[in-house]
Amino acid sequence: MTDRALVVVRAGALTTVQDRGRPGHAHLGVPRSGALDPPAAALVNRLVGNSPDAAVLETTLDGCALRARSAVTVAVGGAPCPVRVGGRPAPWGAPVRVSSGEVLEVGAAVAGVRSYLAVAGGVAVEPVLGSRATDLLSGLGPPPLADGRVLPVGPPTAAPARLDTAPQPAPPAELVLRVTLGPREDWFTPQALRDLTTRTYRVSAAGNRIGLRTEGPTLERARSGELPSEAMVLGAIQVPPDGLPLIFLADHPTTGGYPVPAVVHPADLPGAAQARPGTPLRFVLVRR
């Protein structure tokens, strides 16, 4: 019997199992979760011949290392980083063969934040509500990787892609996020809305999978009082009492009581997930 599994040699700062998440349960208080950079996760899955639903690993800045218990095909994408197999350099953004017993090293990201590692057959941890994603807000799905942990790998479903390297977008030097106003722009002063959509922010180091935090002009409210809790969407810009916009990412809470003046276009969120602390950030108003 083949033991298809990866053993965690170095878990890294924060490495989680991710897939396309568990949408459809928000009415029960379940966040959608899933990969923060879905196109990158989909690409590495395609490179190893997986379906787009297969679970991958999402690293944070400093990569991870895994020992293969049997020969497997892997691919690393998302944030560019050095890749080594058995101590030898291997390509990034391409299918790579790892022999039984060899260690795959996903190095520290040279740009961007989150690298993605797909293994042919997918990471086969037990799904929860139809998804294997780690949800750091509610604790659903497997815990973040820890050294020594064994990750089961499923049977490969198709041959790896026959290409040397796949083009991937570079992490943003400046993050430009298109936004549409609403639902609660009337809770803010006209000056606050002008500041939000014309001045430059920076990506804060305090962000995580729940939200991207910002540094920059604080947004003044036009009204006081509390907003009754309402449901939140991916990309919602929530403004807590400190006045600094916070952009909800995959593990965001399903409801919230702070007003949302605008929502980021979903196509711009993968770039947000790859923007390092300090990256200049502009919100650009677009018509619906």
Partner: peptide, 19 residues
């Protein structure tokens, strides 16, 4: 995809033509 009630609102998410 999602129909999410809250205190004074109901959110519809994953709709084709919200306008």
């Amino acid at each position: 995809r999602e129909i999410v009630p809250a205190a004074r609102t109901v959110l519809l998410d994953g709709v084709d033509d919200p306008v």
